[in-house]
Design a binder for these strands. Structure first.
Lengths: 353, 353
DNA sequence: TTGATCACCGAAACCGGTTTCGGTTAGCGT
DNA sequence: ACGCTAACCGAAACCGGTTTCGGTGATCAA
């Protein structure tokens, strides 16, 4: 039985209205009374009932994070850090952070509608949108402030925070080309994911910028896991002309690739180069340590929270868009292609040009 | 402007009281009226304002997860999965999950007091308690239902879910002994953490059960990270008689140990055996794949949520205690000690017995 | 002295639900 | 025809705050 405002008021010989205004710094309360109320409040340990307060002021003061889950798979590793950052951003205003699981494909919109209609949330953070994500359409139509962690094709109208996956994969491909690679494959995630399409675009653009083409079978779309990366790699290595370099849509897939390469008796970084994406800390302990395109994860949650609060304050979503860059972290899985292959490669290039 | 109950009522020519009772299946509402209300409700997309509802029924219908953070370090990897499970458990009753960061040492109790006093939460889930955790004392005194993910020394009075770290380390030590090891060291986390003490107890007990002692310097308490594991390992390997087997308080520390061992030109699993703890999926990609004591993480969140809801329903905390067992997952970092060392070792044993 | 102004606080409406209580109507027995 | 009961719903209190509005007392000028 917590101490209520009424109890505080009668204790002071005042009315609840006066107490409320005193605590909220209304100008029509004398400094003396305000001080008295303050003193009594924290002597009795009074805290306003937030449920009542929020009902009264008309906002839930709560935002919701739609935690991505793909069934069977485990929660993506960035989630915990993101939540920490979000929590920090919201804390400065005493807003609450609600976590709800959300699977973009699976009739998940109903949950969202209920959440909004029931006035539980004043804003939404949405991770890993699909290329055409029904949730974005929904949130827009319902007028619920939201910010997307990632982007879709039509990303002009809403607020987002993203890392430039396309540029990252151009960089990755460039890097391999400069090392001497000509046969560069990609292991991509399922293309309904917006980020997968972006990274694929980057791969293609990177090859084109270097006057290279995507050889038959060099684009492998696999399950978004280490197992997916491994099986895709096996397929690649079984090709008549296997690639000498592989870029992967995630570090996790890249780790699977490393395993598959080692299983063939080859050495990642010498026989086949592999570049991952994410920059998960764990990569340094891989065998060998994984070269990757690292993104600055730490900022994400904090920024998403700040942006969402701005939106709720009435900011224009188009002014709340932030694109971060990934950067190459060279470890041990990138290197020049094996000599013999490079030779062969040159002749192929001359043939095709 | 969502449709409110009053709007629904006037639309139907009823009063709000009637509508409310109809929707909540009161027996004094005719089946016909109930049906009419139901139909109109979901035709207009009516959803009860949860803030108002919760104020009225007197419970926030929300529980809070205290997300552990040690400053500087990153969020522990189990958090995301735990949240997913928690969320599932709470969803069946439409309770909300609030995430709050919490650092046990750092005057964090004030935040908790405010949360409870302001009626924002009806229960708390608390991860990684300290050996004597002020938060547990606080929650008990305030009468706030809570369940601890982990245990402290005095764990009888409250609800908890834990994995038996002591037994796990007995098992790990036994395993190394059976492989022929006699010089077994431990790299432990800071001992203010309850789990660290438990695992250390298991290590000591395991040695004692095998009539072995803890040699001077064989217990290294290090920072709870891969860097900590690495530097502790370097100290161990610099000992006049370095260990042939090392058990680590976490997989992350174990990975650091592997790196340090390889840096000395030694091969983990052949020259020095290493056993981690946690069973993080990533361990299979370590160099070499990490042998570890794996715990069944998937259940944790779900169980914690169920237990907390039971407590809120009035269950006795002492009936809500669940101890899981870790199991040994053999990969490639465990093996018999090197021959030469084993020889030396035998002679040592004979000397000391 | 009187009226106007101002500082300060009480009273009450309100947020949107839930729940109690009481009254109306219909159906029934006598 | 009358009373009684049960079924059904309206009215209003309530949850614990916020905010508007109006009233009191003091102060001040005329």
């Amino acid at each position: 039985m917590p101490v209520t405002q009424k109890a505080l008021a009668t204790h002071l010989g005042l009315t609840v209205g006066t107490v409320s205004r005193a605590l909220n710094d209304y100008p029509d309360i004398s400094a003396e009374t305000r001080a008295r109320v303050r003193a009594a409040a924290d002597r009795l340990g009074y805290r306003a009932n937030q449920t009542a307060r929020r009902l009264s002021i008309g906002t839930p003061e709560t935002v919701c994070y739609l935690m991505p889950r793909q069934l069977g798979a485990h929660v993506p590793p960035f989630v915990a850090e993101l939540l920490a950052g979000l929590s920090d951003a919201l804390a400065v205003r005493n807003w609450d952070l609600l976590v709800v699981q959300s699977e973009a494909g699976a009739g998940d919109e109903e949950t969202l509608v209920k959440l909004i209609r029931s006035n539980r949330i004043g804003g939404v953070v949405l991770s890993r949108p699909l290329k055409t994500d029904p949730r974005i359409k929904l949130l827009t139509e319902m007028g619920c402030p939201f910010v997307v962690h990632g982007r879709t094709a039509s990303s002009d109208a809403y607020a987002w925070y993203d890392v430039d996956g396309q540029e990252a994969f151009v960089t990755a491909v460039n890097h391999l080309v400069h090392l001497g690679h000509r046969r560069i494959a990609m292991i991509c995630a399922p293309l309904q994911n917006a980020f997968a399409q972006q990274r694929l675009d980057g791969y293609r653009r990177g090859l084109r910028l270097n006057a290279l083409q995507v050889p038959e079978g060099y684009l492998q779309v696999a399950e978004f896991s280490d197992a997916g990366g491994a099986s895709a790699t096996r397929i690649l290595m079984d090709l008549p002309r296997p690639p000498t370099g592989i870029v992967c849509a995630s570090d996790e897939m890249a780790l699977g690739a490393l395993a598959a390469i080692r299983d063939r008796g080859l050495e990642p970084g010498r026989d086949v180069s592999v570049i991952g994406y994410d920059g998960v800390h764990f990569g340094v302990h891989a065998n060998p340590p994984l070269t990757t395109m690292a993104q600055p994860q730490a900022r994400a949650g904090r920024r998403l929270g700040d942006m969402l609060l701005s939106l709720i304050d009435g900011a224009d979503p188009r002014t709340e868009q932030e694109l971060q860059r990934a950067h190459l972290v060279r470890r041990k899985t990138d290197g020049p292609p094996p000599k013999s292959v490079a030779m062969t490669d040159v002749s192929i290039r001359e043939e095709t040009t």
